[in-house]
């Protein structure tokens, strides 16, 4: 997609529109995560409801992008970088749709938690939310710029999220052991943390696809070798 352009300007525009659509979809999921987290820390159930409502738009865009990618596969029969771009785009939109679902999960847990007194102040969760939001942004940036370093950065942050998630688990376990009345709320908070961790997995999935798109090599699983 760099320097040289396709002879067919229509084709060029179709590919650009896919890129733009993915960036827009990515922005919607980032917003969803941010709002879901805010609905928890500010105990704002109305905000949580809006996250659930807005997910319909994410689903609709996902379907629309996927259809457009399939149409390009069928009508343009892309090869080489164009083929890797389209297959990557299809995967990315799937990841983003799942991220939207996780934001909905978090919003649902927030609504339940908002019904009860707050278990503890949230410190690590907002940090996680910021980090995974940044991962999505970076992974999509790396897609647009074909930037391998940025994709690698996303994979590094994923490690940090894993550690944070474990730390939160341990902390919540102590709350549960202290007082069995804490168990229900602690489990809900655990699920929020778990959802953040899964969002990070999806962002890493996007970064891995970008690496495939740029290098032709599959880094998702060590044993997998798409082109050899």
């Amino acid at each position: 997609m760099e320097e040289k352009r396709h002879t067919s300007l229509h084709y060029e525009k179709e590919l650009q529109a896919i890129k733009d659509g993915i960036i827009y979809l990515g922005a919607l999921t980032e917003t969803a995560i941010r709002k879901a987290m805010k609905s928890l820390s500010d105990r704002d159930t109305e905000l949580a409801r809006s996250v659930i409502r807005d997910d319909d738009e994410i689903d609709r865009l996902d379907t629309d992008l996927e259809e457009r990618c399939i149409k390009i596969l069928a009508l343009r029969q892309p090869t080489a970088i164009d083929l890797r771009f389209i297959t990557t785009a299809i995967k990315i939109t799937g990841h983003l749709e799942r991220i939207g679902d996780m934001a909905v999960n978090i919003a649902e847990k927030a609504m339940q938690l908002n019904e009860e007194p707050q278990l503890k102040p949230y410190i690590d969760l907002p940090r996680m939310a910021d980090l995974v939001g940044g991962m999505i942004k970076d992974s999509l940036d790396s897609f647009v710029k074909s930037d391998l370093d940025q994709a690698e950065k996303v994979r590094r942050v994923e490690q940090v999220i894993d550690d944070l998630n474990e730390q939160i688990f341990r902390e919540l376990l102590t709350f549960m052991m202290e007082d069995s009345k804490n168990i229900h709320r602690a489990l809900l908070v655990m699920q929020v943390s778990k959802n953040m961790e899964r969002i990070a997995d999806h962002a890493k999935g996007i970064a891995d696809m970008v690496t495939y798109m740029v290098t032709g090599e599959c880094v998702r699983h060590r044993t997998c070798n798409m082109l050899e």
């Binding site: 892309p78 080489a80 164009d82």
Partner: peptide, 22 residues
């Protein structure tokens, strides 16, 4: 052939098979 059409090694090849002009 599979390599040429999925991940060619030379930029010129890629430009040609993907229909980019020089």
């Amino acid at each position: 052939t599979e390599k040429i059409f999925t991940k060619p090694e030379v930029k010129q090849t890629e430009d040609y098979i993907t229909g980019r002009f020089g």
